[in-house]
């Protein structure tokens, strides 16, 4: 089915990807689809993504977001992707529930900053406007923008990502079942 669909006549699906407050592990997992990457390049082209180094997102079909929202810049990037993509996918644990970065959520963000910048080095908390300001808590992306699909996992396996992506690309209702559906 895949090969039949991947005819040259087919318009490539334009995909943007980003990692917000995450570890890029989900992006690494995307690379874990191994030789299927060759099939993928026949099917898709990339807009803004660590793969292309395009800085701002243009209109695209699918935006894939790894990581949660921990600062103001994350919000801006996420909104840019949402505004430009027809479909937005939350990829991995952090995008879905805040994940590891959200482990700071029981702490006061002010105390965190003071602890890091002042208490240990005697310095000051930087006030450079270039630096993204931290939110008081780390949030999953569906608390900031509308999200169409969720692919859980830390990271989701290459197989799960491949299954989900190809479902999407070929217009099937994307679905992850046991044992591909995993939260860890």
């Amino acid at each position: 089915m895949l090969h039949a669909a991947a005819t040259p006549a087919r318009k490539k699906v334009r995909i943007a990807t980003t990692s917000l407050s995450g570890c890029f592990g989900c992006h690494m997992s995307l690379l874990d689809i191994d030789e299927r990457l060759l099939e993928l390049v026949d099917l898709v082209e990339f807009d803004r993504s660590p793969i292309t180094d395009i800085k701002h997102c243009g209109p695209c079909d699918v935006a894939i977001v790894e990581g949660g929202v921990c600062n103001a810049e994350n919000v801006h990037v996420l909104r840019e992707l949402r505004a430009n993509a027809k479909v937005l996918v939350a990829l991995g644990a952090c995008a879905i529930n805040g994940g590891l970065p959200a482990q700071r959520n029981h702490l006061d963000v002010g105390d965190c900053l003071t602890r890091v910048y002042c208490d240990r080095t005697g310095g000051e908390v930087p006030d450079d406007p270039e630096l993204p300001l931290l939110l008081d808590k780390v949030h999953p992306i569906n608390e900031v923008v509308r999200v169409d699909y969720f692919v859980p996992g830390c990271p989701p396996s290459g197989d799960a990502i491949w299954k989900y992506l190809t479902d999407l690309i070929f217009g099937r209702m994307p679905r992850l079942e046991h044992p591909m559906l995993r939260f860890d």
Partner: peptide
């Protein structure tokens, strides 16, 4: 609409950085 008040979520960091 976001689930929380984004600007309010920045208030604490604004305060501590003085920005």
């Amino acid at each position: 609409e976001p689930a929380f008040d984004l600007d309010a979520a920045l208030a604490r960091a604004r305060e501590i950085t003085g920005r």
